[in-house]
Nucleic acid binder design. Structure first.
Length: 567
RNA sequence: UCGGGGAUGGUGUAAUUGGUAACACAACUGGUUCUGGUCCAGUCAUUGGGGGUUCGAGUCCUCCUCCCCGAACCA
């Protein structure tokens, strides 16, 4: 399930591609290319993860290799089964299937055995100091560390203590297992890093079998080796861990060549955040409703909002991979969504902020009721196979408030008193009058129609400057629409004050409840995205009846004109 | 302060590995159009700064500047 077949997605070269080709050419590994996507199950996947996933899986696909999904579950106090399930769902939705679903916790026994081996080889020791003492002794940038007084403990004692650790003899924090490397090393990661800590916590998979848990560094490379990974791809912040990754692998009796780590820059987007902590803060503080709130950059939120998975994949492929820290404009992602949706989504008419339009010369039938015509409207001009539908048209309609102005600004092409416009697939109409209430609010617009322009074409070929969408008042279904805007006003939230909450966009969602939809919209299946003509793409909510989420608006030249004239 | 990694237009990614800056987004001009959508045509950088090697440098050397990551029993 990948879209190699998608001609829109061109393969772009990047440094990872080059490295792997080189390794294959030189026969560095006698096994085939294999990588893994290693999330920690303590939150849901977001757009940043999508980049890593696309990289891992597409590279595997391209080089005839495989990719595992591995849950890096070494910290029982933060992880949970629900996230495991959520991540599996998210990955599937994105369109990828893992070769194997693995868990670091499945390697706990092996990891433990290897740790004993290191102790026996004099390469690890039990340190009885507290975390603050250890931290203080670690030194600083340019300042060498100090060796622990327990560093010279003999191997037999270390082994004995380690076994007692495992047996639950000690309380949390009593001691840790440390690798004996070099307290003077320039790389802080190499200053006798902690391999095991005591946690009397039950793990969502191993239950109470363990009370000591391996740290990331002690588990990751070994997990890679166990799975036969060749290329361990991760983000830039792990660069400093690479020395340690290699050190452990060298000291262990593993078949060579060992996997090796290569880092790339994580995906950052403007006007949003992608750290799990910050996402969680937004949820916990009630800024957004949950992990799938459509304003969030999580995959489940994007899905709910109507972002096609294939658009996200195209985006990730095209931005490629590099080692430069960068931040992509969120508009770029949106443009991929528009390109995708423009091709596939059916067009419908919906009025978000309705105002009544009365056609004063509209004919009545023999009973004195306005006649109803069923106008034929194209479903998608981008795809003839989508055909047409019939939309009821009559003498009383709703149009968008924005489409009428009494005193129009320059370049306003829409309806104004005296002007003629087209109602899409309907008729040309001319505004003769309008009605306001005592407080000056627009109540009704009165127009006459030209019967000769049925279907929206004038026999004399005269032109109009605008085509408006409309909904017949008698046939309209009423529903609601949620309009989303960026969650943060600042490109880089927290840039000025350091607190992302200071940059919150307090108008990031607006829900309109009196929207008028053409009848066909009531038939739209849940989670399907349609284009509301002239407005944008909208996804039907699965829970709330007749609610649509705005996926993304259409490009809006009129908005640009207004912005320009303002300057 | 030490170590590691970066720097190409408004933004992001490329450049046959030393051969004369490409693609996308955004913006702007104009054209087409029954969506101010789509589509089409066009405009918009000499590669952080200095010096050097070379017929030729974004690619090599050198000095400088700026930015990111790192002192968790998180990953």
């Amino acid at each position: 399930m990948n879209d190699k077949a998608d001609p829109d997605v061109a393969e772009r070269s990047n440094f990872l591609h080059d490295i792997i080709s080189e390794d294959i050419k030189n026969g560095r590994f006698e096994r085939s290319f294999r990588t893994r996507f290693p999330p920690e199950p303590n939150g849901y996947l977001h757009i940043g993860h999508a980049k890593a996933i696309c990289l891992d899986f597409d590279l595997a696909d391209e080089f005839a290799g495989t990719c595992n999904l591995r849950f890096d579950d070494t910290n029982p106090t933060t992880e949970d089964e629900t996230y495991v399930e959520g991540i599996i769902d998210d990955l599937k939705w994105l369109g990828y299937e893992a070769e194997n679903i693995c868990y670091t916790s499945d390697y706990f026994e092996q990891l433990y055995a290897w740790a004993e081996l290191l102790i026996i080889d004099g390469l690890a020791y039990i340190d009885d100091q507290s975390s603050v003492e250890i931290s203080e002794q670690r030194g600083g940038f340019g300042k060498p560390g100090v060796e622990s007084p327990f560093r010279s403990r003999n191997d037999d004692e270390n082994l004995d203590l380690f076994r007692q650790m495992r047996d639950g003899v000690f309380p949390e924090g009593h001691c840790v297992l440390r690798a004996r490397i070099d307290m003077q090393h320039d790389n802080m990661q190499m200053r006798d890093p902690v391999m095991y800590r005591i946690k009397h916590a039950s793990h969502y998979r191993t239950g109470d079998r363990w009370c000591i848990y391996p740290t990331y560094d002690w588990a990751h490379g070994q997990g890679d080796a166990i799975e036969g990974i060749t290329h361990s791809l991760c983000t830039l912040e792990f660069s400093n861990n690479r020395d340690l990754y290699n050190w452990f692998l060298e000291k262990l009796p593993l078949p060579n060549p060992a996997p090796y780590q290569t880092e790339f820059a994580r995906l950052e987007l403007t006007h949003t955040v992608t750290s799990k902590r910050k996402l969680r803060d937004l949820i916990d503080n009630g800024v957004v409703s949950s992990w799938d709130d459509p304003r969030l950059p999580t995959l489940r939120a994007l899905k709910k909002r109507g972002y096609p998975a294939s658009a996200i994949r195209s985006f990730c492929k095209d931005i490629g991979a590099a080692r430069t820290n960068s931040r992509h404009a969120i508009e770029l992602l949106e443009s991929y969504v528009r390109v995708n949706l423009n091709a596939v989504s059916q067009r419908r008419m919906a009025i978000l902020r309705p105002v009544k339009l009365i056609i004063t010369n509209w004919p009545n039938d023999e009973n004195g009721h306005p006649i109803v015509e069923w106008r034929e409207v194209t479903n998608n001009p981008e795809n003839e196979l989508d055909g047409v539908r019939l939309v009821p048209f009559s003498g009383t309609l709703y149009i968008e408030q924005d489409d009428f102005q009494v005193n129009p600004p320059p370049k306003f092409f829409r309806l104004t008193p005296g002007a003629e416009v087209r109602l899409r697939s309907g008729y040309f109409i001319t505004c003769n009058n309008f009605v306001e209430n005592s407080s000056g609010e627009l109540q009704e617009i009165h127009c006459t129609y030209d019967p000769a322009t049925a279907g929206g074409k004038a026999p004399d070929n005269r032109k109009v400057k605008a085509t408006l969408h409309w909904v017949s008042a008698d046939h309209a279904v009423t529903g609601s629409v949620s309009l989303y805007d960026r969650l943060f006003t600042a490109e880089l939230p927290g840039e000025t004050t350091g607190d992302v909450m200071d940059d919150l966009n307090h108008q990031s969602v607006e829900t309109l409840t009196n929207c008028k939809f053409e009848p066909a919209l009531a038939e739209t299946p849940t989670e399907v995205v349609v284009q509301f003509e002239r407005l944008g793409y909208f996804s039907r909510d699965a829970g709330t009846p007749l609610l649509f989420h705005r996926t993304v608006g259409l490009r809006d030249e009129w908005a640009n004109i207004q912005k320009r004239t303002k300057k």
